[in-house]
Design a protein around this nucleic acid. Sequence first.
DNA 1: AATGCGTGGTT
DNA 2: TAACCAAGCAT
Length: 314
Amino acid sequence: MQLPQTTSHVQHRIIDWFSTNARDLPWRSADRTPWGVLVSEVMLQQTPVVRVLPVWQEWLRRWPRPSDLAAEPSGEAVRAWGRLGYPRRALRLHAAATRISSEFDDAVPATVAELKSLPGIGDYTAAAVAAFAFGVRSTVVDTNVRRVEARLFSGTALPAPSLNAAEMQLAEALLPLDRETSVSWNAASMELGALLCTARSPKCAACPVRTDCAWLAAGEPEPTYQPKGQPWAGTDRQLRGAVMAVLRQAEHPVPRSLFFTPAVGLDGPAEDGDPPLQRLHALASDSTRLERILADLVHDGLAESSAAGLKLPG
DNA sequence: AATGCGTGGTT
DNA sequence: TAACCAAGCAT
C-alpha cells in the first residue's frame, strides 16, 4: 500500500479527538521526566494502566532518578514491582538504571539506538521513550497502533499474529513528517486503540474516523485466525509466580524446608485469598519440579540462594 | 520465529 | 466461566 507521508484528514481527526479525550496520566504531565516516562513504558509492557498507576507513583517517589534506583539492590526493585507481573522487567529496569547512571551521567538517552541498547528496552519502548520523553520523530508501533491500522487501512478485525515488515512500512508511511505532529499521531493512535478501537467490542459509534474505516466498510468481518491462548493452570509460570509472591512478602531468607514441607492442616485447592506460602504448597505437589523452578529463578537473578534459604537478590 | 515469561480484570 | 487480553522483550 502506497501512502503519501503527508498528514491526512483521517490522521488529523484522530489527533483532534486525542486533544479532548486523552487520559490525564501522570507520565504525560507537564512536569514528567524522561526517567518517569521510561519507567511507565516498561511497566506498561503487557500490563494495564490501572494496575500500573499506583506502582509507578511509588517508584517515582522513591527513586526519582535512575541513580536512586541503581543505589539499591535489585531485589528492592523486584519487591516494589509488586504484582505487576513479569518481574524480570523490574530486574531489567534496575540494570538499565545502573547503566544510565554509570554510562549516561544519570540522564536517560534520547536516541532510539542508545535506548535499545538498554536491557528490557526493545523496538516499541525505545521508540515510545524517544517520542514521548524527548519529542523525537520515531515510529511507535504497539498492539493498539497495530489494531487501529489493521482496521482502518487494511480492513481486518485484528493485525497479524506478530509484527511484520509490511505493517512496519505502513506505520512508517503514516508517520507525519512534522516532528511535533508525529508525536501527537503516535500518542493519539495508541490512545484510540486503547479507549475505542479495542480488541473486543470496539466503541465504533464514538470513533472519530468511523466513516473512513475499512473494517467497518467491509461489514466488520471476523478475525481470520484463532488467537493462541495463554495457558496458565499447571504451568511453570504459575508456580514461579507463587514462589515470587512468597519471596516478595518475606523479610528474611525463607528456609528451603518451608518450600518443600507444607504445614499440616493447610492442604487443599489454591484460592485467591490464601497466604503466599499456602498457595505455593497447594500448587507444588512435585518436589522435583519445585526444585527446578527454584533453580531457574536463581539462574534468572530473581532469587538468591544461601544456607539460610531463598530471598530476593540483595 | 516460536516460545516462555505474571497477573488480574473483562466478557 | 473459561477464555481472552493488556503501551513486549529476549532467546
